[in-house]
Write a protein that binds this DNA or RNA. Sequence first.
DNA 1: CAGGATCCGTTTCGATACTG
DNA 2: CAGTATCGAAACGGATCCTG
Lengths: 138, 138
Amino acid sequence: MRKANTKRRSGCPLNASVEMLGDRWSLLVIRDMMLLGRRTFKEFLGSYERPATNVLADRLRRLAAYGIIRTERDPTDGRKLIYQLTPKGIDLAPVLTELVLWAGRHEKTENRALIRLMQKDKEKFLAQIRQRCEQPRK
Amino acid sequence: MRKANTKRRSGCPLNASVEMLGDRWSLLVIRDMMLLGRRTFKEFLGSYERPATNVLADRLRRLAAYGIIRTERDPTDGRKLIYQLTPKGIDLAPVLTELVLWAGRHEKTENRALIRLMQKDKEKFLAQIRQRCEQPRK
DNA sequence: CAGGATCCGTTTCGATACTG
DNA sequence: CAGTATCGAAACGGATCCTG
């Protein structure tokens, strides 16, 4: 669909980041993994914003190509694929946190409980995410 | 172009943020304002990634509709329009910072000097941005 | 049945030309 | 200078179909 990562013009800060994350879906997939613990294609499909299957497949492919997520077959159910954040993906947690906090400061209806947790102890929150998402190196 | 902000479904964290910032250009405009001090249509046009005029106009309109930037006529040159970050826009600085730091950790060719500055004293860096972008309330 | 791929009508993008 | 108008190209989204 969108061809991933042909020219990597990183001459300016944020250029590369926006290339990887600057679209309607990529950050939402990462949110689903990081905050909601989702891991399969079907779970992402059921996300709040309802991506189309082809778009979702494209975004998962792109995120994998950028090394932000990776895929693995479910050991207990051969049909299922598990998508996981890589260390690089987990490392996006501070970005996500700041974005949620920003929205919490300026928009009315975000998830207040989550925001309070983030505000109260940012470091602890990040540690939780890292622990939840970390997987044994295969 | 894109109709701004009709339905505001913020039932899920990041939903609103992505609606405002989740595209190829919005964050880059904010970067140009925040990090590079750009303030006019022409200056944004000359940005590293070269937006088309219509897309740029659309994004500026959207960002203004979301209260992230605002516009003001140049007092010294009536033809010029000055775009400025609102307090809400300035408040995106931590998000931008984390994103640049993330890219710095995982991509090769970002601006190392800027990253070192950010790492060394994040708070001081944020204070600098706030000062540079703050404008007298009219 | 899970994870997509394909088709297709609609929306958005982006380059260029043009206007107030 | 700061945009709008136009138009072909690309991306989107929904439905459906395919494959292990």
